[in-house]
Amino acid sequence: MPGFVLLVRKRAAGELASADQAMRIGITVSKKVGNAVVRNRMKRRFRALAAEMLPEIGIAGADHVLIGRASGIERPFDDLRSDMAKALRKVAR
């Protein structure tokens, strides 16, 4: 089971500034996942994951939201990377 849920929403033409195709990222981790230390660790891992993968395979002009799940706390970073690639490929269709 992946350690996160990925939501992607393409911004409408009215929401885009002239030729603004920047990708935006939002990260949220609920208190149900753990205490502040655990949540902040997950957010740091998600930021690193997004910085690594979104420039290559993210969707231009879209908002990407990562919602952390409890299964992602101790999930190896390589597994998170493969989950992100799979999710982005699925969304791109």
Rank of each mutant, 00 (worst) to 15 (best):
A92P: 01
I59A: 02
S30G: 07
R81A: 03
P76Q: 03
V5W: 12
E15W: 10
I27S: 05
E56T: 12
T28I: 07
L16Y: 02
A19D: 15
M23Q: 15
R93W: 07
P76N: 01
K10P: 09
A19L: 09
R39F: 03
A12M: 12
K10W: 10
K86M: 13
A22L: 14
A19M: 07
K32E: 02
D79W: 01
R47N: 03
M23T: 10
L80W: 01
E15V: 08
K10C: 09
S71R: 06
I59V: 11
P2E: 06
R24C: 11
A70F: 00
M1C: 09
G34Y: 07
G14Q: 13
L16C: 13
R93I: 08
L66R: 00
D79V: 12
I73F: 03
I25K: 03
S82C: 04
K86C: 13
Q21K: 14
E74M: 05
P76V: 01
A48H: 10
A12Y: 10
I73D: 00
R24W: 12
I25E: 04
V29L: 07
L54A: 05
S82Y: 04
F4G: 08
I25S: 10
A48K: 02
E74P: 00
V33L: 06
M42G: 09
A36K: 10
L66E: 00
G58L: 03
R45V: 01
L88C: 05
S30H: 04
P76H: 03
E56M: 11
A17Q: 12
M42N: 05
G14W: 11
I27F: 13
R39P: 02
V65S: 06
M84S: 03
G3F: 01
R39I: 06
R24I: 09
N40E: 08
I59M: 12
F46K: 02
A19F: 06
F46Y: 14
P55G: 07
R24G: 13
